[in-house]
Every structure is written in structure tokens, then in C-alpha cells.
Simulated scan of single mutants.
Amino acid sequence: MKNAPEYDPAHFFIKLVLFSNYPLRSWGFIPFIARKMTAVGGQVVACEPKRCVKMILFYMPGACSLSTHISLLETGEQFRLVKVNHKTLKTEHGENFLSISPDGRIPVLKLPTDDVITDCVGTLHYIADHFWQSGVSPAPDSAERARLNAFLTRIEHELHAQFSLLQQKRTTPDLRDAVITRLSDEFEKYEKLFSDGRHYLMGRQFSVADAYLLVAINWAGMIGINTFRWPHIGDFGDRMRGRTSVLAALRAEGLLVD
């Protein structure tokens, strides 16, 4: 499709199938939460539309924008969600998404100033820069923040970009097999990383990079890579899906059904 996003989530994501690769051992019940929401003090509360004027997140269910959605919830900042149809590239309000993001890329984070931040890593860097005191990122200009930046770059190039190759029409069976091998090799590296006992990529503290890695793990399940063959990665996935922000984002995007 001309001007379509580089990664088309429709090929991989349907509601319950998204988690067909994972046991539900760590999921807890939380009541239905309204689609426009914000996380406050570890709890998710409804956000009145008139108050959600700080930021607008344009997303497609299950796409890489899910990582931005999760990260925003973790900050406790107020924002509004706007769903984009991956086929028509129209927003849920009928607006032409190409007028907001000319190349159709998701996510887009629109600021109160009407400035627009595009791409997954771009929005995650913005969140890390401006809301680091909420705990989603180490302090700016610190060595730890440089490590976080390195993780974001690595996930973008070694995982996200590989999944994008699978969406191209010219992808042959041989190329698909090669991509799956490269992805498996990269997940092996994360398995080794988590083997030191860390709970999250940066140690014991959640960061925006964890939300990005979770999306890649979800995508892996959709192409037949069983990430639970790597026990530490499986534990990380369970730990992430136990977070209030993750459950709330999945519900809001229609990816988790009671």
C-alpha cells in the first residue's frame, strides 16, 4: 500500500491470538478501564476527555506504538488516544492520518504546542527526556541514560527492523528463514543478559526500553518464535504483563479481552 506504515500490525495481531504464545500465570483481574486514561501512583484512573489535552498519541493496536502507550501510562501524565485504521489511514474521527504523519508512520505523539514527535524511538526518547523523574528513565546526561539509549537503538535495529522485513512483498521464504534466525540469535543475547538476575533491561527499574522489548516479544510469538524456550525472557514477559500500565494499554487497544 502506498504511504502505508512500514510495519503493518494487522498481519500479526488479533485480540486473543496475540498471547497464544504465553501462559496467563501472571495476569490478574482489573476492572474495565476507559480508553482515555492515565496512570497515577501505580494505579490506573479514568481520564476525562476535556482534561486530556496535554498530549495526543496516535496509535494502531498492537503496533510499536504500544510501547509509547505503556510508557506514557507509566509517567502518570495525561494524554488522549486516537486510533488509526491501518488500511484506510484514517483516524477514528475520520481525519486523514497522512495530514499528521505524511509517511503514515506510527506512533505519532502530538504535543500541546502542536509539535509532532514521530517514530517509536523518537517518542520514547521524548518521554525519557521530559518525564524521567517518574522513573521511566535514568537522569539525562548520566551514564545510565546512555545505556538506556543504547538499548533503544539495539531494539530498533536488531529486532524492530527485522520484523519490518517480514512485511515487505519482496520477502522470499529464504529471506524469511534468515530473518527468523537473526531474531532468534538476538533473543539469545537477551536471554544471556537477563541471566544475571535483573528484572528489567536496566536492572531492577522499569524503563521505556522494556516496553519496546515487550512489543518485540509479542511480535515474535506471532511469527512462531516461542520465546518461552528462553526462560529468562519468558519471566521478563510475565513480569511486564503483570504491570498495571501494560494491562491497561492492552485493554485500551482492544488486545486483551476478559
Rank of each mutant, 00 (worst) to 15 (best):
A139E: 13
Q162H: 03
D141F: 14
I30C: 06
K189M: 12
L89R: 08
E186F: 08
E6T: 15
K110T: 13
F228P: 03
A249F: 01
T38I: 06
R25T: 15
G203R: 14
L16F: 10
P9H: 06
L213W: 01
T91D: 04
G237W: 08
I100K: 03
Q168T: 09
L247V: 11
P140A: 14
H157P: 00
T153K: 05
Q43D: 08
K87L: 12
K54M: 07
L111C: 13
N85L: 07
L148D: 04
F194Y: 06
G28A: 14
E144T: 08
E144S: 14
Y212A: 01
T118L: 15
R182I: 10
Y200M: 07
L193Y: 12
I70D: 00
D238C: 10
E95Q: 14
D185S: 14
K90Q: 14
L165S: 05
C120Y: 10
F29Q: 09
T171H: 09
E48T: 05
I106G: 04
Y190Q: 08
V40W: 08
Y126N: 00
R170T: 12
I70E: 00
S134W: 03
I117Y: 06
S134M: 05
A161R: 08
S207Q: 04
E158P: 01
E186Y: 03
S71E: 00
L148S: 06
D114L: 13
F236N: 03
L256E: 07
G42I: 05
T113Y: 12
Q205I: 02
S20F: 11
S184W: 05
Q78L: 11
G224T: 01
D103H: 14
L124T: 04
L152Y: 07
F32E: 15
T172L: 03
Y22N: 14
I223R: 02
C47I: 06
P9S: 04
R239G: 05
A248L: 05
R145S: 11
W219Q: 02
D196C: 04
G62Q: 05
L201T: 01
C47A: 09
E144W: 07
R241M: 06
F151G: 03
A178Y: 08
R251P: 04
L57A: 02
I33R: 13
P107Y: 04
K54R: 10
V116Y: 07
K15T: 12
